[in-house]
């Protein structure tokens, strides 16, 4: 019962977040000086053509009517029509979404696969050279500028060594198994940029919680029972230390998505972030707005999944 209540509270919060995101963007777009109407209408149009165009896009209605229409359409999955591409925004973005999910998802998984052992090693030998390196690396890592990392990787592995492709998501002339290989090869550099960006916070955070867990009574009890130190660290301490880290995932998701916008721009990766970059150049506000709403929805869903995982990891949540 506890888990159900926990999940439904989180679900409500997710919906609230989404509503907030949608509402804020709607009013920002309508109230800020950059008039969307000016962006659609070109100066060579006659007054009639302009009025026709505005009413086509529903821009001549009162603001609250537009808001209600927007929410209603949104509930049906309609994000509006792109100003420039003359296609539904949702169709444009859904074509891009899988690439962004692949990029951010795989980089998150790799970050955890690399980060957990690194944090464990640093926490087990506190004060060692490795521990110091992890701490300094973690701080510098938090200060990195995403494009810097991307450009560096692109230059070294793509241009100088020539090992990996420098842009796009896959080669156009490959089929079957080779296509998967091509997708993987194109994923490595942008993915690695995001891994380097995220690794610092996770490792530092997990290291601190592990050090705390390792000095608690229950780990000493395990040790005095004769449990091997490896098992104490990996089984007893790690499970508890991972709990706050799961919360950190929720806080970091927004940064990860922001990082993917910059990374996709550098590597011409055809995800949502690249679509945002392109729509900035074209002042295509419906695409920018839709992209933000879709990314916010993605973050909300991912947050719900981590909450669920938290509930499963922590029995206290299920009982109370």
């Amino acid at each position: 019962m506890g888990l159900l209540r926990f999940v439904s509270v989180r679900l409500l919060r997710g919906l609230l977040t989404l509503w907030f995101a949608v509402t804020v963007t709607f009013f920002l777009v309508r109230l800020l000086p950059g008039d969307p109407a000016l962006a659609v209408a070109s100066p060579t149009m006659t007054a009639d053509q302009r009025a026709q165009m505005l009413s086509d896009f529903g821009l001549d209605e009162p603001l609250l009517v537009q808001y209600a229409t927007y929410l209603g359409q949104l509930a049906q999955g309609n994000l509006g029509i792109s100003f420039r591409q003359n296609a539904p925004v949702l169709d444009i973005l859904l074509e891009r979404l899988p690439w962004t999910l692949l990029l951010t998802g795989s980089s998150l998984v790799v970050t955890l696969i690399v980060g957990v052992p690194l944090a464990v090693a640093a926490a087990r030998r506190q004060g060692s050279a490795l521990d110091r390196a992890v701490q300094v690396g973690g701080v510098v890592g938090q200060a990195l500028f995403v494009p810097t990392v991307g450009i560096f990787l692109l230059y070294v592995f793509g241009v100088w060594l020539g090992w990996l492709p420098i842009g796009g998501a896959m080669a156009s002339d490959v089929y079957g198994l080779a296509a998967y290989g091509s997708i993987l090869a194109h994923l490595v550099l942008p993915g690695l940029s995001l891994v380097l960006l995220q690794l610092g916070p996770y490792v530092l955070f997990l290291r601190t919680s592990l050090i705390e867990a390792l000095s608690e009574d229950y780990t000493n009890v395990a040790r005095s029972k004769g449990v091997s130190e490896t098992k104490v660290v990996w089984v007893h301490a790690l499970r508890n230390a991972l709990l706050p880290t799961v919360t950190l995932v929720g806080l970091q998701l927004g940064f990860l998505v922001g990082g993917s916008v910059l990374t996709e721009t550098i590597f011409a990766y055809p995800g949502i972030g690249r679509a945002i970059y392109e729509s900035v150049g074209q002042l295509d506000f419906p695409v920018m707005q839709g992209a933000f709403v879709l990314l916010a929805a993605t973050v909300v869903v991912a947050n719900l999944l981590t909450d669920l995982m938290y509930g499963l990891l922590d029995p206290r949540v299920r009982q109370t």
């Binding site: 919060r13 609230l16 977040t17 907030f20 995101a21 804020v24 963007t25 920002l28 777009v29 800020l32 000086p33 950059g34 929720g250 806080l251 998701l253 927004g254 998505v257 922001g258 990082g259 916008v261 910059l262 972030g273 945002i276 900035v280 002042l283 506000f285 920018m288 707005q289 992209a291 933000f292 990314l295 916010a296 973050v299 909300v300 947050n303």
Partner: peptide, 24 residues
């Protein structure tokens, strides 16, 4: 507290991009 939580969980960079593009 809820406002802080909601704002922290949103992807801020895409939102900044939208606003900066609109405001010039």
């Amino acid at each position: 507290g809820m406002l802080i939580d909601v704002m922290l969980s949103l992807p801020i960079l895409p939102l900044m991009i939208l606003v900066a593009a609109l405001a010039g």
